[in-house]
Design a protein around this nucleic acid. Structure first.
Lengths: 198, 198
DNA sequence: CCCTTTTGACTGACTAGTCAGTAAATACGA
DNA sequence: TCGTATTTACTGACTAGTCAGTCAAAAGGG
């Protein structure tokens, strides 16, 4: 029956995170003001400043919130069969546009701020390393089990992530459905010809 | 000897474009203010407003200036031998970081604003189409001459551009030299295995 | 003298962040 | 269990600063 002592507090934090998400989704990163977050939250800006001293602190917390959700989603891929696992992971990375397109846009904006914001940079680097590690591991397993060609797992993972990031960037900048389809096809070709080849 | 009537004016325009370039390079797109451009220009902000009514107008002109320079640089590749031409074009697209890194950063920032700025979006789309057309043409020639495999030129060009854009994004976000090296290797592999295969 | 160009002073809109005060919930003491 | 502190969560008014853009006046060359 013992409830964590900060149960109410963390509910508030979560509500602010969700408000930030909606404000970001609607107005983009450049248009993300404390006022807009407060509007989504349904309280005053001072209320948010009560929980987070600065905007920077709030955004750091928000990025943690967001990337953790992302990693949880990727983590749900449970197959151990290397080829199937690799394809499923890559499918997870190349998400459908639809509802998530606004977030894809906002994420690229935030990523483009990495050079000016150490907090952002650290978190994006850490997240990328995590995903790359997952890919390297599954590629390594595939090679051990003899179903994948003897490629360099690190280089192969980096190449696949480059294609994924390129597709995301192009989907945002060029507003093209095609970008993600191209990536899906390219990744499939790459898996077929480079990884499975022999 | 007839000089265009707006010779002085266009010299001023060019000076403002160069000032904008330096300001963008130094402060990034989010930190690009009229004051900073004026500082680089060595005149007051009102002086810039005399030549460009709004900041948006100035940035539209600047993007034209920038993309035209970019296309000129790519246009200098004159070889007609398909394989050599394709490799040289791709080398041009994956530029060295060094001096240009600040610009690469600013360009990603500007590209990430495309969803909110029709002017930007149009120009980036147009530029992308131009580059893609160059790639499609050279791939088409290669196929005709029998040196390239019978791939789909459009799909191949899109895939190559996806890798290039992914590399650029990763170089900015992750601050990695590796990103561009990975792209160079990936593009080479792709050209070797997919395009030249038979 | 006129026309282009430039300046300095200004405006209004918007920004993050501060602060005193308030109301309700919670803890504590007798 | 009743009354008194204390804490949590918040509001509304405010500050100080930044931004793009305006405008009357002035500089300066032809």
């Amino acid at each position: 029956m013992a409830e964590p002592p900060d149960r109410r507090t963390s509910e508030i934090d979560e509500a602010i995170m969700r408000a930030t998400y909606r404000a970001l989704h609607e107005h983009g990163y450049a248009g993300l003001t404390m006022q807009r977050i407060a509007d989504e939250y349904g309280k005053s800006t001072a209320a948010i400043h009560y929980h987070y001293d600065t905007k920077e602190e709030l955004l750091a917390a928000f990025l943690d919130f967001l990337l953790e959700r992302f990693r949880e989603a990727v983590h749900e891929v449970e197959t151990t069969d290397p080829e199937r696992r690799l394809r499923l992971l890559l499918d997870q990375l190349i998400v459908e546009p639809g509802d998530h397109h606004g977030l894809l846009v906002a994420m690229l904006e935030m990523r483009s701020q990495a050079p000016y914001n150490e907090t952002f940079r650290e978190r994006f680097q850490q997240n990328d390393e995590y995903i790359r590690y997952l890919l390297e591991t599954v590629i390594g397993h595939g090679i051990e089990e003899g179903v994948f060609a003897d490629v360099d797992p690190e280089h192969t993972a980096r190449t696949l992530l480059t294609v994924v990031d390129g597709a995301r960037t192009r989907a945002v900048v060029l507003d093209e459905q095609t970008a993600l389809e191209t990536a899906r096809a390219a990744v499939e070709e790459y898996v077929d010809t480079v990884v499975l080849a022999d």
